[in-house]
Design a protein around this nucleic acid. Structure first.
Lengths: 343, 343
DNA sequence: TATTAGCACTCATTTGAAGCGAGTGCTAAA
DNA sequence: TTTAGCACTCGCTTCAAATGAGTGCTAATA
């Protein structure tokens, strides 16, 4: 549908706009070394491209800027397939050669480096609780009737909770209780633990554990799992250095969104293979209408665990960013797969 | 040194400026009901106050605004001792009547409500690791040679860490190890655990636990405690709605500071009794030169654990904010004291 | 037929002058 | 000691003119 020349001009225009953040005029394009036709010709082509909705003017006599449709087309069809810059690659890989011990730190570091490299905001959605199943449960008495329950999941995650035991619980009882719980709850998704207790195990415990009645409530509370997950941020304030966000009000909408965990989670939890690009109004959220969000998910053994995202202005260095996310997500997947297989 | 009338005028001026954020002129002051003298008189007094450095002009023919010295004087001498507004009080107390279970949630909620009530940024420095001592240690084997170590502190805090046991560790050994560690390390500050292991306990363990040699490194790593603490934020973006921060560059300095944990920690960790007020350049940090930081610490049994702070523009509603922080910090102290005494 | 030079036109932005008004300091009268 | 009066300052707004980057259209050219 578009002629080769139109494609070429569109690409040049978008590349230039992404670089300089200023409306691109016919003269600017014609000055490029690899452009042989005159400004007038380009003006004609630009008029056509505008009619087709790929570019637009900020006012009657201004140069053109890409429209959202233009960016969409660019991302889908015009992305130059240049490999990652060597320095970017090296920086990313350096992160993985310093072997990062804790998973949390891995995410933190990834978010930080990603945001430094791109100057956009990086958001990593950590492994989600409802994807985890219980591997092992332990209850450790501390003092009086206080105890700590320890949960170990199939993903190697460990979590602890306080629990209040009833006054009269015999040592043997507690052991029996833990044994039964482990038998019955091993492999069960965390979010289902509580309902399983009520539906299946309650009766068994009733008959085997004397003090069960007294601790039923505490147990139930202990097993109640919300869909908790963790967000890791990098470069939260990077949006402030984007020229199109020099207005405080615009900035505010985005920053407040970043501070609202529920919104971010929603925006960023996009379970899909490969890489997703949401441009401007393609984002549900009003506050993100001036942003683009690139999203890649990481997985272990083919199962999506979480995602890595970049939030920046619609004018974004798509090609670089997409390459980086692609590399990073598969690298993280590999790391986690390796780590989890140890358990 | 200052006459009563000068004191009065200074107070009125600052109160007005805090409220309206605009230079205050002689006419404005004279219009108040409780002011009986004419603009000209006031102008004379203002000139004196300016000469003394308490107020300044933004340009030759503008009204006056308080200088930092003025704010300092105001905070030290002129704070009207009006009690908290009833609605503020109720809001704060509502937070404590809904009994908050987890300590983390208590801090989170406090920061949120405090920031909503004031429209400034609230930062709460959680209990610091180096103030905690070990109460009880437990090692739970999981699979293979993986295990989880659980630390319970005198403040009721629970933390867990992964540990890699050597291949050949006999069950009895582990039990003996944990017993010895508990005996020797109970009551020791977390940050000293590792050095204690090396200096005192190493030899004991050598002679009592056969596989100790193999696990020495892992143990040492497990006991290595950094000065970790946690920050809780509320209203991070509130600064954006302050009229004196409508310039993106000014905002950026502050927001980036808020994102840099080390800076914030440093800024906010001000161990002192009562309430501290740092105005503008009194803050070490350049980025906080346009801000005031009010700081109150909370404690358990007279021992400082952490602090509650508010960060806002130098023009701040000091009287309201100070009252609120005062109340909140003592309330939190009471809660924590009560909570910890259960352990 | 496709390209390009030329030209009139548009419109955001910059510049400078003029007027407004809120505020001042100073002086002289009350 | 206080206050009325007045000249003065200076930031802010408004308006008009100049600037310049860019356009669309037309007619000439390859």
């Amino acid at each position: 549908m578009l002629t080769d020349r139109q494609l070429f001009i569109l690409q040049v225009l978008i590349d230039d706009y992404i670089l300089h953040v200023e409306p691109v005029g016919s003269r600017t394009i014609s000055k490029r070394e690899d452009v042989s036709f005159s400004p007038a010709t380009i003006r004609n082509e630009l008029a056509d491209l505008e009619e087709l909705g790929f570019i637009e003017k900020t006012h009657t006599s201004s140069g053109r800027i890409p429209s959202e449709k233009g960016y969409r087309f660019y991302v889908d069809n015009l992305l130059p397939k240049t490999p990652l810059l060597r320095e970017d690659l090296e920086r990313l890989q350096s992160m993985f050669t310093d072997k990062v011990e804790e998973t949390e730190k891995l995410f933190d570091e990834s978010a930080r480096i990603l945001s430094e490299l791109t100057n956009y905001t990086a958001v990593i959605l950590g492994p989600q609780a409802y994807d985890m199943t219980l591997k092992h449960l332990q209850i450790v008495p501390i003092t009086g009737n206080m105890a700590v329950a320890i949960f170990i999941t199939n993903t190697g995650h460990v979590e602890n909770r306080h629990i209040m035991l009833p006054d009269a619980v015999e040592p043997g009882d507690l052991e029996k209780l833990v044994n039964i719980l482990n038998e019955r709850l091993s492999g069960v998704p965390l979010v289902e633990l509580d309902s399983r207790l009520k539906s299946e195990i309650s009766s068994v415990l009733h008959s085997h554990v004397r003090s069960f009645e007294n601790m039923q409530d505490a147990l139930s509370k202990m097993l109640r799992w919300s869909k908790k997950d963790k967000l890791f941020f990098g470069g939260k304030t990077n949006i402030l250095s984007q020229p199109e966000f020099k207005d405080v009000e615009k900035v505010r909408a985005v920053l407040e969104m970043l501070e609202t965990k529920d919104l971010i989670r929603h925006l960023v939890a996009e379970p899909s293979d490969g890489i997703t690009v949401k441009i401007g109004r393609e984002n549900q959220l009003e506050a993100a209408h001036n942003c683009s969000i690139i999203n890649a998910s990481y997985s272990v053994h083919g199962k999506h665990l979480g995602s890595i995202s970049l939030i920046g202005p619609t004018r974004m260095d798509y090609k670089r960013v997409i390459m980086m996310l692609d590399m990073l997500s598969s690298e993280i997947s590999a790391r986690l797969t390796n780590r989890f297989s140890q358990w």
